[in-house]
């Protein structure tokens, strides 16, 4: 028996909106520690890892570890029917091939339940090695989304270079070139507006902008985004999910032939 009750149902709505266009079908893994997912996009260039810890749920009952295969587009369609303030409960009986999403309005005067068929998805989990990052960038998530959107109107790949001056996002295309430089700025009113660069050493990597733009669909989840870079390995773009966990996007770099 599985019964997960999330009072801040809007978090789950936002999570699905941020991954449904990147990944089609995925297995959600439920265990005592929490509700998680790890899946690659169809081209195996990007990987998303989601964790919602059990403590973040108002009620978390997971009698045994189970993995539920879902079509994320269909799941997103059902979650769209939940109000932003609704409590969302996810239920599945042992051995059942369906999952039920229950939406309760805050005043409990409206209760809806949507039942979705589960799928068999064979996907092995990848081992993600802990890495020492050469540069860690923490910046307002809206700012990162704006930069990716603006640059993708000029070119389709971005070179992200971190030096002690700051971080530079560069692109070039048929109509010309664009460079955006963000400097460290910690003298701000609110901490979430700061741009922090922890950079033990300079690094420069090239990525496809369309994936980064896809990752920024997670912007509503967090005011800040953490971008961890190291030479020759995937970048990690992480959005924290309010005291519950995180959604991490890994993107493989483009390497000079």
């Amino acid at each position: 028996m599985l019964e997960l009750r999330l009072v801040q149902g809007s978090l789950l709505k936002k999570v699905l909106e941020s991954i449904k266009d990147l990944v089609n079908d995925a297995n959600f893994d439920c265990s005592a520690t929490g509700f998680s997912l790890q899946a690659m996009d169809s081209s195996h260039v990007a990987l998303v890892a989601l964790l919602l810890r059990s403590e973040g749920f108002e009620h978390y009952r997971c009698d045994r570890n189970i993995s539920m295969g879902m079509n994320l587009g269909n799941m997103a369609k059902m979650l769209k029917c939940a109000g932003n303030d609704d409590i969302i409960t996810l239920k599945a009986d042992d051995g059942s091939d369906t999952v039920t999403f229950m939406f309760e309005s805050p005043t409990q005067d409206k209760i809806a339940d949507f039942e979705m068929r589960l799928m068999d998805i064979d996907s092995e989990h990848l081992g993600i090695p802990e890495a020492e990052y050469h540069a860690i960038l923490i910046m307002p998530s809206a700012e990162f989304a704006r930069i990716c959107k603006d640059l993708s109107s000029i070119g389709d790949t971005v070179v992200i270079s971190v030096t002690k001056e700051g971080v530079k996002f560069s692109t070039r295309g048929d109509i010309g070139t664009a460079n955006v430089v963000c400097r460290q700025n910690t003298t701000v009113d609110k901490p979430e507006e700061a741009t922090v660069i922890e950079m033990p050493e300079p690094v420069s990597l090239t990525f496809a902008l369309r994936y980064l733009n896809s990752f920024t669909k997670a912007t509503p989840l967090s005011n800040t985004v953490t971008i961890s870079l190291s030479s020759e390995i995937p970048v990690v773009v992480e959005y924290k999910i309010a005291e519950m966990g995180y959604i991490r996007f890994y993107l493989a770099p483009k390497i000079e032939e």
């Binding site: 690659m40 195996h44 990987l47 092995e124 990848l126 081992g127 993600i128 890994y250 493989a252 483009k254």
Partner: peptide, 14 residues
């Protein structure tokens, strides 16, 4: 030009 790598080049199946 630069060649797009896949994530599986870096992360191995468990």
């Amino acid at each position: 030009g630069s060649k797009q790598c896949t994530i599986t080049k870096f992360f191995s199946k468990k």
